[in-house]
Amino acid sequence: MESLLPKTYEEIPGCLRQMTEKSRFIGGGTDLIIKMRMGLAAPDAICYLGYVRELKEIRREEEWLSIGSCATMTEIEQDPEVREHYPALMDAAADVGSLQIRNNGTIGGNIGNASPAGDLLPVLYLYDAVLEIMGPDGVRRAGIDEILAGPGRLNLACNEAILRILLPPSTGYTSFVKLGSRKKVTISRIGVALRIEMDGDYVKEMKMMVGAIGIKPVRLEKAEEFIKGRTLNEQNILDIAAILSDYIREHVAKEFDRDYKVFASRGVVMDAFHRLRRD
């Protein structure tokens, strides 16, 4: 097994040139190492970008937030900019696995693993995240949805690395709530990410992304349309929960816990709306 271990930003392209279809990037390793031991991945080379200082940084770039792909869940959860301007990302990072997993697992790895239950994915869709990608010959940018292809699949060449996650300025109130089968150390069964802009007591605009109910995060446009111009009273929130239940009943296969998710979606939606208030 080869290891490709760039120590500086300038060394990355040279390492990328040596990668083949069988090579893999490792972020924390919390998913890849398990896959390797199960025989689901047998890379000829592993590229670890965690020694490159710039890829650990979380910083403002004018109005945007730039998150290095090797930033851990703990670093994201504790970052003051994330907490103030992207609280739904804080919610999602804080709820990943156990503390040991959050201290090790990275945002780049969460995207690269491309699990339908990936905790950060609905939130990255919510905030319209843009990925900065480096190939052997240069850097390009693409929206998260252009890159995420399906379970375990990305629209990236084998020698392209995710360097940074860029979040545009966030407006309105945002939140994320994950439902697992227990409180901690759990895999997402449903994840609801919300962004709301109010006009007085009325909803001006809502964006609602739901994770773990499809191969990629699902945008619930029907709910977004429904709530526009209405107030956030309990009945309206219950109606949104019903729209999600109906969607799950129609689109999720029975073997993916459909009946449980149809039932449980109500509580997740209510929690996500309550969390918008941050009190």
Binding site: I26, G29, T30, I46, Y48, L99, I101, N103, N104
Partner: peptide, 13 residues
């Protein structure tokens, strides 16, 4: 300084 699983860290890291 951070608690991590030694089963989920490789020598190259």
């Amino acid at each position: 300084g951070e608690a991590v699983h030694s089963c989920l860290v490789l020598a190259c890291q």
